[in-house]
Nucleic acid binder design. Structure first.
Length: 945
RNA sequence: GGGCUCUUAGCUCAGCGGUUAGAGCGUCCGGCUUACACCCGGAAGGUCCACGGUUCGAACCCGUGAGAGCCCACCA
């Protein structure tokens, strides 16, 4: 049922003397008419490509304006973006878009991470589908294959970023393995190597027998797994010691038993050799302070080649390291267990020991922490091997200090504690990986044992017998350089000068250690020639949480509750998807989302859409939507107009502050409620009478009804149109960072100007970067007046609803009260909001309304549900009486009056007075109800002075 | 084994020392009101995990206990 479009007034001759700023210059296109519903699919792609084409996202290294930089947490090229990326990108984009509008020279640098082990695993899985392994292809062909994968996956990711609306500078896109970054990696490696901060050593490292590579400590995930603790009797006639272990098979590699030096139980055995079961070998008993005499039997079997602790003990006592397993976890010790997998060997060895009567006790299940490969879940095997390490202590010290002394601030602050825990107690970082996909370690070995580190500008050693280290670097080595390698480091480029340090790092708390800490280590080291405050990789770190489902459960493929951001974008729009995520994003907090949330966000977009549509239908055009320099003087505005401008000013300031604190959820909430409740539900409704008068929709504005009063009807209407235009204009700018697409569509339609992307921000702006918009006037008096009006209307509606009256029906009541203004001033608005079509006894314009005391005087002749009314009044009365009791008790307390702040006491006094009035009023009304008996609660006579 | 966090309306969460503890979604009631039914109006729903303490005053601070989660960890 289409309704006839109301005739639209020609926009009042564009006489408006509004000061347009150059960035906002109109394109001359006339404001377009909008359909009744927002259709995101239709506008998003078109808008995005237009933005890119216009170059809005390009940063300028030579610009005079202060810069604002964010480097993207580079997504892994393992597939496509998940909802967590969408959250991250939404928050970054919101920050970046606001800064751009504030006049900063803004750079959001996009790119991707080669993600060494993760990507290699993915491609290996692909190959496995064809029954191939990487070894079938050979190193070179395999790496080619991964590049091919990277092209596909990367393309997918970039497409997703465009769909999300990410305002990245595409001209600066980087990849951790592109030529420039590889150069940075090599430079960094050589520098660290030369400084003695990279070294090679034979150590026990975490080894994944499936990925066949070393792992760093943080690539190992611990979980409490069921195992069994077996106590085994070592030795025989030569003396006995019982040891306990959860990894029985490792006893094949034992080369000692250790006890505490002060342990009297074993003192006589220290230095002796005892028999190691099953092997026919004899091993020494050594005394080592590391052994805890309280734990178990106080004796430990020592397997230097397969346990980091034991390795240390072995070093201290000069024990041999006996390797009994190969890289796949298969026993190589010889004997009956030769060729068994470690998990087959375990029961086999146990059975053999049992057969020999060596097993003293078995405890199962025995819960203990077991390390797993974070990429494939395989149980990690400690393994003795030659690897490269970064000596982190000196680097970590600097990284800790930068946060301690405030050069880098972490949000939320509580997360800093975790950061310190880690950075202050970090083991050396194993950086070599036995993989093919990644940055090859720039070390060459010569025929005579030479070891040469090759920098990016060095020629690799040539000649017979030279070969490069086959390993690659941990993927986090290159991502640790990301904030400066992407800007051209090691060269002193204009980009590096302009955009480093970056401003904010926005990422999930889950990679605080993996990534954030590494960037700190490397950034401070690489930039150590700068002033300390400018050496940091970023000034702020804003951590967000994980995206969870509507029950707060972690999303996982096995649980089947994952969300594909593209699916939501397709069905609800990018803006709705973004808003849903941002709305849940408290600093460091996880975000619970569900489809209903997204639908709600979609509805919000539609609400904005219709607000603008309404404005347009009411003659708000490009001439009305301008800077507030063009606003009529406050004296010629209605209280309603002054109220909404005042509220807008407050909300603008609030949103600014919230953005600065990374309080996205609160910013969204503030905008949502302001836009929906205050602008749409109240302001538009309150403005209707005036606008109707002007647009000829409902007859002329009646003279003398007090609408802003003075002058011919349309002056008031015109003023309201301008205010409405101004409010929507600014509101759209304010929401744009979060909802870039709808706001662009609406803002350009409303104002006829080029793009809101480059429009001025309505709040604070960068120092000297741009002129700000004129500050809106605040008006506390108008706010008080309108909130009284709102209360009045609400009260009547409530009454009507209680009474079961149809909204179209007249209120059988008389309205009184409101001190700040005459009720008559608002008659047309009250009539409109309450749908009082005809004047009559139901409305008495001469009465006054009291702000704190909105009164409905019942017309006793009307048919009302007396019982319902009595019930309601009784309930209100009870609440008011409870209030009085509480406050009176408080005020009766001498300590409170003396010790509480004066304003708190005053506030309570006011509350008491208000409540007492309320009680009196309610009592009267109850008494006045038809058929009121004498038993009406009677507290009157207690009126305050 | 250390460290951190959480427990508030049916669900997901705000609030973190002074209003009658809030929001979204859900629920109930009433409405095709010429921007929007992706809407409008109204309402119901909470011993703020328990117990103790500090305070004039506690959902908020401090203990203790019970549940849940996260991070770190070389205790065999």
């Amino acid at each position: 049922m289409r309704r006839p479009e109301p005739a639209r007034l020609a926009p009042a001759e564009a006489t408006a003397p509004f000061a347009l700023d150059s960035a906002d210059v109109t394109t001359g296109t006339e404001a377009t008419k909008l359909p009744a519903q927002y259709n995101p699919g239709e506008v998003e792609a078109r808008r995005y490509e237009a933005w890119v084409a216009a170059g809005y996202f390009r940063a300028d290294a030579e610009a005079a304006a202060p810069s604002f930089t964010i480097v993207i947490p580079p997504p892994n090229v393992t597939g496509s973006l998940h909802i967590g990326h969408a959250l991250d990108h939404t928050l970054i984009d919101a920050l970046v878009r606001r800064r751009r509008m504030q006049g900063y020279n803004t750079l959001w640098l996009p790119g991707m991470d080669h993600a060494g082990i993760a990507t290699q695993n993915v491609v290996e899985r692909e190959l496995a589908k064809d029954g191939l392994s990487r070894h079938d292809l050979g190193r070179e062909a395999f790496v080619d294959r991964v590049w091919q994968w990277k092209a596909e996956s990367g393309g997918r990711i970039l497409g997703q970023m465009r769909r999300l609306g990410d305002s990245v500078d595409w001209s600066r896109e980087r990849f951790t393995m592109d030529a420039g970054l590889s150069r940075a990696v090599q430079t960094m490696f050589k520098r660290l190597y030369t400084d003695g901060l990279i070294y090679q050593a034979e150590r026990i490292i975490n080894w994944c027998p499936r990925c066949l590579t070393a792992l760093s400590d943080i690539e190992v995930e611990h979980s409490d797994d069921d195992g069994e603790l077996v106590s085994i009797r070592y030795g025989d006639g030569d003396g006995e010691i019982v040891v306990a272990t959860t990894r029985v098979e490792t006893m094949l590699g034992d080369t000692a038993v250790a006890v505490h030096p002060d342990d009297p139980r074993y003192a006589h055995l220290v230095g002796k050799q005892i028999e190691l079961p099953l092997t026919g070998r004899r091993i020494p008993v050594v005394a080592d302070p590391h052994v805890d005499p309280e734990f178990g039997t106080g004796a430990v079997k020592v397997t230097p080649a397969h346990d980091p602790d034991d390795f240390e003990i072995g070093r201290r006592h000069d024990l041999p390291s006996l390797v009994i397993m190969d890289e796949r976890g298969v026993i190589t010790a010889g004997g009956p267990f030769q060729g068994l997998d470690r998990f087959e060997a375990r029961p086999a060895v146990l059975a053999a020991l049992r057969a020999e009567g060596r097993v003293v006790a078995e405890r199962r299940p025995y819960l203990h922490a077991v390390g797993h490969c974070s990429r494939c879940g395989t149980t990690v095997e400690p393994r003795l091997s030659l690897q490269w390490f970064v000596k982190v202590e000196p680097l970590a010290k600097a990284a800790g200090d930068a946060v301690r002394d405030g050069r880098v601030r972490i949000y939320p602050q509580e997360m800093a504690a975790r950061y310190f825990d880690w950075v202050d107690d970090m083991h050396d970082w194993c950086i070599s990986r036995q993989l093919w996909w990644g940055h090859r370690i720039p070390i060459w070995y010569g025929p005579n044992g030479e070891v040469v580190c090759v920098g990016p500008d060095d020629a690799a050693p040539a000649g017979e017998g030279w070969r490069q280290d086959p390993d690659v670097l941990d993927t986090w080595f290159s991502s640790g350089l990301w904030p400066f390698s992407t800007l051209g480091w090691p060269d002193d480029t204009p980009d590096l000068r302009a955009f480093y340090p970056t401003s904010v790092l926005v990422t999930g708390y889950d990679i605080l250690f993996f990534w954030v800490a590494r960037m700190m280590l490397f950034g401070l080291y690489a930039m150590s020639d700068r002033q300390p405050e400018d050496a940091v990789p970023f000034r702020q770190v804003a951590l967000h949480g994980l995206v969870r489902d509507q029950f707060g459960k972690k999303m996982s493929k096995t649980r089947g509750n994952t969300v594909d951001p593209l699916d939501w974008i397709d069905r609800f729009g990018a803006d709705a998807t973004r808003f849903t995520l941002a709305r849940g994003a408290t600093p460091g907090g996880d975000v619970a989302v569900s489809e209903e949330w997204v639908a709600g966000a979609r509805n919000f977009c539609n609400k904005l859409w219709n607000a603008v549509r309404f404005a347009q239908l009411n003659g708000v055009g490009a001439d009305s939507a301008a800077d507030s320099a063009g606003l009529p003087p406050a004296s010629s505005l209605t209280a309603v107009d002054r109220w909404i401008l005042s509220r807008l000013a407050a909300v603008t300031a609030e949103v600014d502050a919230l953005f600065d604190q990374f309080e996205f959820a609160k910013a969204c909430d503030a905008l949502y409620h302001f836009a929906w409740d205050e602008v749409c539900d109240w302001y538009l409704e309150l403005a209707k009478p005036a606008l109707a008068g002007a647009a000829g929709l409902a007859g002329p504005v009646q003279a003398g009804n007090g609408l802003a009063g003075n002058g011919p009807g349309d002056t008031a209407a015109d003023a309201t149109r301008r205010v409405l235009g101004e409010v929507l204009d600014r509101l759209l700018r304010l929401i744009h960072p979060l909802l870039p697409f709808v706001t662009e569509e609406l803002w350009t339609a409303l104002t006829g100007r080029e793009s809101v992307v480059i429009a001025r921000w309505p709040g604070q702006v960068a120092d000297g970067a741009a002129e700000s918009l004129p500050v809106l006037p605040t008006d506390p008096a108008a706010e008080t007046e309108i909130s009284a009006l709102m209360r009045l209307v609400t009260e009547v509606r409530r009454f009507r609803s209680d009474q079961g009256l149809r909204p179209g029906q007249q209120v059988p009541a008389r309205l009184t009260g409101i001190a700040t203004t005459s009720l008559a001033d608002h008659e047309s608005r009250i009539r409109a909001l309450l749908r009082l079509s005809e004047p009559g006894a139901d409305f008495s314009p001469t009465a006054t309304l009291h702000a704190e005391d909105v009164t409905i005087e019942l017309d006793t002749a009307a048919r009302i549900d007396v019982e319902a009314e009595r019930k309601r009044l009784a309930k209100d009365l009870a609440a008011a009486e409870a209030e009085i009791q509480g406050v009176e008790r408080k005020l009766a307390n001498a300590s409170f009056v003396e010790r509480a702040p004066a304003e708190v006491v005053a506030k309570n006094r006011a509350r008491l007075a208000a409540a007492q009035q309320e009680v009196a009023r309610l009592t009267e009304r109850i008494a006045a109800l038809p058929g009121a008996a004498a038993d009406a609660p009677n507290d009157s006579g207690e009126r305050p002075a």
